[in-house]
Computed example of a mutant assay.
Amino acid sequence: MNKIERQPTEGITFRIPSSLLSKLRQESQKKHVSLNTLVNQIFKEHTEWHMYAAQAKLHQVPKNTLSRLIDKLTESELSDVAIDMAKKDFVEVGLLLRGEFTISSFIDIVENWSKISAFPYKYEIKENVHTFIIQHDMGKKYSLLIKEIYSYLLQETFQKKFEFIITDNTIVFKFSDPY
């Protein structure tokens, strides 16, 4: 989440092909982070998302393809699909990715999904109000899909009062939780 926790570290040596190491060094320079930081980010993404993605039956689809499919649905159909996804898929994914499905794991999944999807996002907590702003650039119907999924989960699964603002390319949602 937002708090940086210092964890104990250990030194370890890996043998990495020179060509791969060169690419990692280039990426670290491009991102203005140390090679150590980049490698730790890669390990974290792998252990928190990619390691379990196949088990959770997650599949990558190009953004443009997904947008075109979603745009073919009416708003009513989209709402029905979203609720069905929330009921049947999201809890299972949460359990596989985090071992639990709580408000805390939901927040963690939304934040990691945003990172993995390369969506610019902002997440903050002020006075127990959690605010997410996610810029997806995938159109109004995608905003509606995500709004419907998250609304169902926040209301039905976590019994949270929430507020949503959606635009053609951005989702903003807020809810209170003192966890």
Score class of each variant (00 low, 15 high):
119 F>Y: 14
133 I>Q: 05
142 Y>P: 00
34 S>A: 09
96 L>C: 07
173 F>A: 03
111 E>A: 11
110 V>T: 11
52 Y>G: 01
57 K>H: 14
160 K>M: 11
163 E>K: 11
102 T>K: 09
52 Y>Q: 10
110 V>C: 10
132 F>P: 03
138 M>F: 01
115 K>A: 06
144 L>V: 08
7 Q>K: 15
126 K>R: 13
85 M>W: 04
165 I>F: 04
105 S>I: 03
12 I>S: 12
117 S>G: 05
139 G>P: 07
7 Q>P: 10
170 T>G: 02
128 N>Y: 10
122 K>H: 13
33 V>K: 10
85 M>N: 02
11 G>T: 15
14 F>G: 02
58 L>C: 06
124 E>V: 10
114 S>I: 05
31 K>H: 12
114 S>G: 07
79 S>Y: 11
7 Q>I: 15
156 E>R: 10
159 Q>V: 12
60 Q>I: 13
160 K>L: 10
19 S>H: 08
157 T>E: 14
10 E>H: 12
126 K>H: 11
9 T>N: 07
137 D>L: 07
86 A>P: 04
40 N>C: 12
142 Y>T: 06
45 E>N: 12
137 D>P: 00
98 R>G: 03
168 D>C: 03
106 F>H: 07
14 F>N: 03
62 P>E: 11
70 I>F: 00
118 A>K: 05
103 I>M: 12
79 S>E: 12
145 L>I: 04
63 K>V: 11
119 F>Q: 02
127 E>Q: 14
49 W>A: 01
178 P>W: 03
155 Q>Y: 08
147 K>V: 02
170 T>W: 03
163 E>G: 07
75 E>I: 13
26 Q>S: 15
147 K>A: 04
178 P>Y: 07
38 L>W: 04
56 A>W: 06
123 Y>C: 04
100 E>W: 06
109 I>R: 10
42 I>R: 05
133 I>P: 00
117 S>P: 02
165 I>W: 04
137 D>N: 15
35 L>V: 08
80 D>T: 05
11 G>I: 14
165 I>S: 06
121 Y>P: 03
141 K>G: 00
141 K>C: 02
162 F>S: 13
2 N>C: 06
85 M>A: 06
163 E>A: 07
125 I>R: 05
43 F>M: 13
101 F>E: 01
63 K>D: 14
169 N>C: 08
58 L>D: 01
52 Y>V: 02
96 L>I: 14
140 K>E: 04
160 K>Q: 13
103 I>P: 11
105 S>E: 05
60 Q>Y: 15
82 A>Y: 00
85 M>L: 02
124 E>A: 03
39 V>P: 01
179 Y>T: 12
55 Q>S: 13
27 E>K: 12
60 Q>P: 14
11 G>L: 14
136 H>A: 04
128 N>H: 11
59 H>V: 13
133 I>N: 05
79 S>H: 13
14 F>Q: 02
53 A>W: 01
155 Q>L: 07
146 I>A: 14
35 L>D: 06
113 W>F: 09
69 L>V: 08
136 H>S: 02
139 G>Q: 07
149 I>W: 00
25 R>W: 02
72 K>W: 01
102 T>A: 03
66 L>V: 03
26 Q>R: 15
73 L>Y: 08
80 D>K: 07
114 S>C: 13
159 Q>D: 15
121 Y>R: 02
30 K>H: 06
44 K>D: 14
62 P>C: 01
91 V>T: 13
19 S>I: 07
168 D>T: 09
144 L>T: 06
127 E>P: 06
4 I>V: 15
